[in-house]
Computed example of a mutant assay.
Amino acid sequence: MKKVRITVMRKACYKDLMEKYENPIEHACDIDEGAVFVADGWQRPEGMCESAWETMSPFVMALAHGAENFYDGWMKNPRSAMISCNDGFRPVSFLLETVEE
């Protein structure tokens, strides 16, 4: 099984939606752009948001087992995927890439 590098590419924040729909919360995502995690199988990398992991783990496992070319050429690198977490107020985009050893 291959390892998969997970890089935090971008964080967005939709304050207008938060003000209109979200109840105030004390702790939101504290992941930093540029952070890199390495996944080795189904185990969530240390420090990775559990909710984000739930969203991306099927793609991570597919890449780890050699899958490529998701959605018929969606990504320029066929052994990668761009996945966002499911937070509609402050989504984070993650680049998943198979690590060639």
Rank of each mutant, 00 (worst) to 15 (best):
G34V: 08
A35I: 00
I31V: 14
F37C: 04
S57G: 00
S51D: 11
L17I: 02
D32Q: 14
N69D: 15
A62L: 07
G66V: 08
F70S: 03
P91V: 03
P78S: 15
F59P: 02
L63C: 03
N77H: 14
V99Y: 07
P78G: 08
N69Y: 08
G66F: 05
W53Q: 02
E22H: 03
M61A: 05
R44Q: 13
E33L: 01
M75V: 09
P58V: 02
N86E: 07
W42C: 12
W53T: 03
P78F: 12
A12K: 09
F59L: 07
M75R: 13
D40P: 13
V36P: 00
C49S: 08
N86A: 14
F94H: 04
M9I: 12
D72A: 10
E50C: 04
I25P: 00
A52V: 05
A81S: 11
W53H: 07
Y71A: 13
E19Q: 11
M18N: 02
V92P: 00
K15P: 04
N77P: 08
S57H: 06
E54W: 05
V36K: 08
E19P: 01
R10L: 10
F59R: 00
L95N: 11
N69W: 11
K3E: 15
C13H: 12
V92D: 02
G47N: 09
G73Y: 13
K76G: 08
D40W: 07
V99P: 09
M1G: 12
L63K: 03
D40T: 14
F70K: 06
E50V: 13
S84Y: 00
Y14A: 03
F89P: 01
E68A: 09
Y71Q: 04
K76M: 14
S84R: 01
N86Q: 06
P24C: 04
K20F: 06
D30W: 04
V8M: 04
G34E: 05
W42M: 14
E100A: 10
D30V: 02
E101I: 06
L17P: 01
M48I: 06
L95M: 13
M1Q: 13
E46W: 08
E100T: 12
V38H: 06
R44W: 06
V60Y: 02
M18I: 15
K11A: 07
